[in-house]
Design a protein around this nucleic acid. Structure first.
Lengths: 163, 163
DNA sequence: CAGTACGTTCATTCCTGATTGAACGGAATC
DNA sequence: GATTCCGTTCAATCAGGAATGAACGTACTG
């Protein structure tokens, strides 16, 4: 059972991810699992999203790497099952933070190699790098705050039989 | 005169932007103008970055829309000149913030249309949207803080004859 | 030891957005 | 008013990553 509104949400998440330079299907998979609220198999993803097995596998693992999904093998079962973590956004945020730090370091390093006589330009570039660095710090702060909220009011685990 | 280190920086910015789903050339243009520190014409961009006039124009205006560049016509001159604003990162940040708010609204709206019996899923999706909304708020706060710093220690306007 | 059911990999195909470059239009100059 | 110099637009091309699906490896099953 898939209401049109749910499909729309899944599609929208796909577009959103796409517009951010990430695979559209990854967004759809995440949306699907957020809606599901329970573990789903690769096969279920393929059926629901009409994507190939390869895509489902690849993108699920991609999301696993970012920490947005968790893979579980319920009891002695033959299929992997995938589950959106309680607060997927938090994981995504931390991925961005990591990327920012990497960028900051790279830019700072490059600025360090600027030739004599370009100190002002160097300064401007270092300021630019600092933005990334300080933003990363700020985002850590932010993540910590969100993390607290989650602890304070943990996800209710009531599941509805939705599918 | 373009040192290799500077070219590397420009290229890196291009890759960075590319990896974030934005036109590579836009990143290069911004990098070029940050290094320059002074207004540059479209023609200069074309020469320095080896890109077409169309690209230079399109991407410069794109950056203008985000607020990272400013277009000036020095005195009675026949060419536009482009200039990186004092704190380009701030402008970029605000663009992201805007996008986050839009996403939050869109997702919330879609969640509102979920059918009966899917309240839990609806809740999860709304939580997800809230993340975007609250992140946007947080980024505003952050932008305000950066803005203050800029006021406190304004950009030094010393220019070195670098080119 | 077949036979089956999964998940992963990888060469290929596909698609979309970036980039180009020629054509256009407007403003300034002579 | 003709010419030149710009910036913009847009149709066509290009490039690069996403998506596919067949082939492969592995772990169960009978």
């Amino acid at each position: 059972m898939n209401d049109a509104a749910i499909d729309e949400f899944i599609q929208a998440m796909g577009q959103l991810w796409h517009s951010e330079g990430r695979p559209r299907i990854a967004g759809q998979v995440l949306a699907y699992l957020i809606v599901a609220g329970e573990p789903r198999s690769l096969q279920q993803m393929c059926d629901a999203l009409q994507i190939s097995k390869g895509s489902a596998s690849t993108n699920a693992r991609l999301l696993e790497d970012t920490g947005a999904l968790r893979r579980v093998r319920p009891l002695g079962a033959r299929q992997d099952a995938w589950l959106a973590v309680p607060n997927p956004s938090l994981a995504l945020l931390q991925t961005v933070t990591r990327r920012f730090r990497t960028s900051a370091e790279a830019i700072t390093r490059l600025a360090g190699a600027f030739p004599e006589g370009m100190e002002a330009a160097q300064g401007r570039v270092e300021d630019f790098a600092d933005f990334y660095r300080r933003s990363a710090d700020f985002m850590d702060e932010w993540a910590a705050r969100i993390g607290q909220d989650c602890q304070a009011e943990p996800q209710e685990s009531k599941t509805d039989g939705e599918d």
